[in-house]
Structures are given as structure tokens and as C-alpha cells.
Design a protein around this nucleic acid. Sequence first.
DNA 1: TATCGACCGATACCTTCGGATGGGGGCGCC
DNA 2: GGCGCCCCCATCCGAAGGTATCGGTCGATA
Lengths: 223, 223
Amino acid sequence: MLDPQRNAANTARTDADEPPVVFVVDDDVSVRESLELLIGHAGWQPRLLESAQAFLQQDKPRGPSCLVLDVNLPDLNGLDLQACIGTARPDMPIIFITGFGDVPLTVRAMKAGAIEFLTKPFDDEVLLLAIAEALERSRAALAHEAGLAAVRDAYGSLTPREREVLGMVVSGRLNKQIAADLGISEITVKAHRGKVMRKMRARTLPDLVQMAAQLSLPSVPGG
Amino acid sequence: MLDPQRNAANTARTDADEPPVVFVVDDDVSVRESLELLIGHAGWQPRLLESAQAFLQQDKPRGPSCLVLDVNLPDLNGLDLQACIGTARPDMPIIFITGFGDVPLTVRAMKAGAIEFLTKPFDDEVLLLAIAEALERSRAALAHEAGLAAVRDAYGSLTPREREVLGMVVSGRLNKQIAADLGISEITVKAHRGKVMRKMRARTLPDLVQMAAQLSLPSVPGG
DNA sequence: TATCGACCGATACCTTCGGATGGGGGCGCC
DNA sequence: GGCGCCCCCATCCGAAGGTATCGGTCGATA
């Protein structure tokens, strides 16, 4: 089987096209070594860490990634680490592995969004499937995030007044109504509106509405 | 604080304003009896069933509801019952209870959308909290479904041509462009468009875009 | 001080939208 | 045949959207 890592290294200096990264955080060295082989053989990049602290010092990879995490760690609890990650990085799904199968722990982990919760010993194939699913979810999250970033940036370039107008426009208010609400003239609203369209790179009104929805802008009730 | 339930009861004969229904499916009669008390005392309507079969013959309540389900049932597996319900009724969240805490089972249940997975014996308070959360989610699902139903009905009343026009309109195409695409005159597009707006009860174009998004209508690429 | 950007405004012009009014052809159903 | 519905088209009109050009105030910043 061809090593995708080498292929990528030959052609690009960006690392976006490298194989997905699979982090393994486990204090048991034998587990790390066996997972390194397993993950590497599946065509992914294994990154082995022995503590939550060491993991948190890692740089975030640009491509899709996931985390195989032992619940019982020397420094930080696996669930706590999940809490840290889950909020900041929805593009790094977690697969838990543990020696002691505890139902309440399982429930907590799954409710917090874990992909899988495996008890040792587990079947390699099951783990690989879980990793594949996690990476797929990571890919989706990254794609979603990338799409959002452009819109967010554009929104960030708007002036307060322009945002105000944007909100009203996507709520279906007419220029005349917006002008009355803001106490300004209709022609000025048109000017703001035009600038909003250009800055947001929206060619049509429905485009703008979609973008506002992506940004989950609250729609004005009087719309 | 005024009780909105009672207010509604004065005016309507619908039963949507009854207290939420909590189904309990467990083959152990002592469990059923104790949960009946617990649930009733919390102000909800307990409905006790001893088998999956019996539950499936129940009518679906109109208001919010949830299901407290024993994994081990005489006839049908709890997980299988979940599979039946989960697809047809996302407005009836499930709380599992079981005597044997099995991690793989827990994972399966949680991945399938269960609210909680409790091992007997469990704290009453924990169950009540889980039920409250489940009912809250049920309420949200019902509200979402109700909002969708109106839009779906309206969409159902559109003729094929009107749906075609709708899709293009919410993609930002101008009447002129739509007319060219369909090989008809612009005036006819206007007529269709007007009818779409009236039938969909959309006052503004952004309204229509929102509705199309709710219906997850695919937006035309050339928009 | 000078410059820049945000914000506001006007006049003019064109396009687009929305509806009213009035009409024709086809198709299925009672 | 009559009826209703869908689909099509035309002219006319007012309202709304969009852009361009010009000009003004204000505050921050170099």
C-alpha cells in the first residue's frame, strides 16, 4: 500500500493535503505502540502523547484529525480534557478507550459528543471504524468552519450601521421602513445596503439571507 | 405566574394543553408502581406499559412526551424499540434504565439519541432531571415540527411549475432569468411568483428564503 | 494640519417587482 | 357540455430596488 504521507511531502509545502492526524493520549506505552502501528498501517498519521498536558501543547493540525483518549490519565481526567477540546475544537472528535467500563462515565462522555467509548480489550477493526467516522466528522466540521470563516470575516468588516441595516434587510424590511426606523433617509439606507452587499460578497438578497442564517443573526420581529 | 395550561383549557377542546406524558415500559411491576408515584408527583402523566408491544399500540400524545425504557424486555429489545421510535418520532426522547450496566449497550443507546442511560438502582432526582430534559427536548421537537408542518403543507399546495419557480426565486434568480431558463415570458414568471408568495404565506422574499431553507430545498447553483 | 473613513443627504436614471385587468389553450371530471 | 385548474401571454401602472454623481459633518489618526 502506498504511503500517502510521502506523496504529499513530494509535491506540496502546505500541510493541508497530508493524511489525517490521529492523536493517541494514553499513559500506557504498550497501548501507544500498538496503536501507532495500527493507525500508521491504516494510512493515517499517529501522534502519541502520554498525558493530557502534553496533548494540549500540541499544535492544531490544519487537516482533519481526531483523538483516541484514555479516560484515566495521570494528570487530567479524560472527561475534563474532552470539555476543554469540545468547546474550542469541534473538528477534533474523540474516541474514548478505557480499562474499566463505567456506565455513568460512558453516558457523560457520549453526551459530551464522543464518537465512541471502547473498553479494553477492543477489536482493532472497531477502533479503525470509529476513527474513520471521527475523521469524517472532522472533515465535515472543517468544511463547515471554512465556509463560515469567510462569511464571518466579511461580517467583521461591516460598520455598526451596516450591520444594523443588514439585520433589517434580511428580515424583509423595506428600505423605506428601515429609513423610518433609523430616522435617516431612504437614499442613505440604499447606500448602506449596497455597501453591505459588496462587503459581504452577496450577489443577491437570498444570498445575504443565507449568510445571515449561517451567522445565526437574530431576525427582527417586525420583519 | 399565570398558568398558561389552564388558560388554554378554558378556550380549547384540544388536549394539547394536558400535562406532558411520561411512558414507562418495564416488565417489573414494582418498578412501574414506584415510577408511577414518582412521575405523578412531579406533575406529569404516567403511562405504564409492561412490554414493547403494548407501548407500540399506544396512541401518540399530542403534547410533549418521553419514554422511560427498560433495556431488557420480554418481547422486543429496548434498543430495537428505540430504533422504531427514533425514526418516526423524534419528539419522544428516551431514557433508558437497566439492571445490568453494559458499556457497549450504553454507547449504542446514546449514539442513537438517548437522553440518559441509568443503571438501577438510581437516584430519583437524577431520573426526574432526565425526564425534565427529555420533555424539554420533546417540546422543542414538537414546536419545530409544528412550524415545519405549516410550511410543508403550503409547499404541498404548490403546482409543479410554482415549485420550480420557487426554487429559482430563492436562489436569487431574477424574473427575467427564470423566464429565459423556463422558456416562458417574464410576465408569467411574475404570476407564478405572486401565487407562490400567497400560497406560502410569505410576506417578503427573505421569508420565502427562510421557508425554503426549512424545507431544505436545494438551491440552484446558477443562483 | 491634513487625510481618511463613517455617516448622512439629494437628484437623476434605470431596472425590477408586484399587481390589476383581460385573455387563450389544454386537460380532467361530473 | 360546463366547470375548474393549470399554464401561458399582453399592456399598464405604481412601488421598490440599485447605482452613479455630487456634497456635507464629524471624529480619529498621522
